[in-house]
Amino acid sequence: MAAISKYLSIIRTSLQEYFIYRLNFALWRVRAVMQLLILYFLWLTAYGGLNNLFGYSASQMLTYILGISLIRSYVLAARLSEGVGAQIITGDISNMLIKPISYIRYIFSRDFSDKFINIFFSSIELIVIMVVLKPPLIFQSNPLLLIGTVIFILVGLTLYFLLNFSLSLSAFWLHGDDWWAPRFIFGIIVDFLAGGLFPIDVLPEAVRQVVMLTPFPYLLFFPMKVYLGQAQTSYILMGFLISGFWIFGLFLFQRWLWQQGLKSYVAAGS
């Protein structure tokens, strides 16, 4: 119980941090809304008089775009753990290593507060957008599909945490500002291959099959695919197997990286 209260305190203090830098947070959300509007209008205009595009009706696609923005605010909100690389480079991580807490759980708790506050505000933004723009949305009523969506959101959340953390650990072997470069590429890959810009089905069949073997579509695309009722049982099972494989593999990989990184860490800072 004492162990849990430690991490609850971390979540609490991380939330308080947000309200100290209110302008920072407000501008971050403004940027998220702008990015959503670009996609929304692009897809809305693309449909024009068309009933179906890439196997999606206009209402399915707009539900996908708005749904993705909500899932993104939960799965990809991890700004606090993105600082792990900087902590390693500057040597600040030494302060954390000597404390009686698990560093990985500390980071997860920080991420949790980020996700909590982002989903709260993005839900409000989405409601405002729905009221103002009145998009033709699909509201799923099948409880099994809703449960499946929630399960795959949790899968995406776990996958992103493991990917993000593993990537941050590359700072153990990089120097100066170089630690940011893999993150830059990672952000671009996630934007395109996770389905944040378009559903993965839009891609040609051969490319799609390859992409579905990577962990990225299970971050955003797959939960929405399940929500829209477009995934057959066999497709869902296959998705579960592939994402499960990646979670298991990345879990082992980040543990190995962490141990190897600590061995090479000299606490010299940059």
Binding site: L53, L174, G176, D177, A181, P182, I188, F192, V202, L203
Partner: peptide, 30 residues
Amino acid sequence: SRIGAGMFLTGKVARFLLFFYFLYLLVSHT
């Protein structure tokens, strides 16, 4: 740092090409 410069350059080019491809794919369908 050539590694960092190489990765940033790769990222910038990839970002351009991927959005370019997306636009091409979308408008060639519509």
